[in-house]
């Protein structure tokens, strides 16, 4: 194994540059180093001006998502050694389809607004008083939504979704998966409220099932599956209301 590896890092300064460029850095190639370690090595030893987001280094906080050789990855979970045999440098870019603020930092307000719009929290028609205790749930009921609840909001799925790239009003994979996570939670009663948001043009029907969101998800949430299951539920509901209008609430 070679002793060093070359990184080709996307650089953009809103004050200095009209266009972005790539800068190459030579970093030590250590067996246990991930791409984020290499970026921190650059920041500490080679170029303090390099800007990027990171926090936990253990695949939980969801802030170090970037493109590594064009693929959306959590840089804290992407080992340098994976790329050691390639002759070309490892290319690190900011997440696709988001505006770039500086270097590898993207603007994420759009995602935050969308996430909030699907009301990803437990909605109750009437809250029961605290004295009556918790809302209980069986392991089976937990198992129904658990996979979708693993989302860490890293936005890799947005960077993999061409629909979001072409039609930025699309609510997007993670937000819809989280809406579905609460819809199928036995304690929740907010499915109708969420349907108002997600049945719109930019909601679930904008998804054309490319399926890449599921492939890049570091937490195996399967947003593509969540969206298709949501579509199926919506279609069945619609069919029911058409056939049996009296059954509507």
């Amino acid at each position: 194994m070679a002793e060093s590896i070359t990184l080709e890092v996307f650089r953009y300064s809103p004050e200095r540059d009209a266009d972005p460029s790539f800068q190459r850095y030579e970093v030590p190639l250590r067996k246990d180093w991930v791409v984020l370690d290499a970026l921190n090595y650059i920041k500490d030893n080679l170029d303090g001006s390099l800007t990027f987001r990171w926090s936990c280094r253990m695949g939980v906080c969801g802030s170090c998502g970037m493109l590594v050789n064009g693929e959306p990855k959590l840089t804290c979970a992407t080992f340098l050694s994976t790329y050691a045999r390639e002759t070309r440098p490892v290319r690190v870019q900011p997440l696709r389809y988001f505006p770039v603020i500086r270097d590898l930092v993207v603007e994420i307000t759009d995602f935050m607004i969308k996430l909030k719009s699907v009301r990803p929290w437990l909605i109750r028609e009437t809250e029961k008083p605290t004295s009556e205790g918790e809302y209980l749930q069986t392991p089976e009921q937990l198992d129904r939504y658990k996979q979708f609840s693993m989302c860490i909001n890293c936005m890799l799925c947005y960077a993999a979704c061409p629909v979001y790239g072409l039609d930025p009003v699309f609510i997007g994979p993670a937000a819809i998966a989280l809406a579905q996570r609460y819809n199928i939670d036995s304690r929740d009663e907010g499915a109708h409220e969420r349907m108002d948001v997600l049945a719109q043009h930019e909601g679930m029907w904008a998804c054309t099932f490319v399926g890449e969101c599921t492939k890049v998800c570091p937490k195996h949430v399967d947003p593509a599956g969540a969206i298709q299951q949501y579509k199926l539920t919506a279609a069945i509901e619609r069919f029911k209301s058409f056939l049996m209008p009296w059954a509507l609430k």
Partner: peptide, 10 residues
């Protein structure tokens, strides 16, 4: 929608 005051994005 994005933040109201923002620098020049790429």
């Amino acid at each position: 929608r994005y933040t109201e005051y923002h620098p020049r994005w790429y």
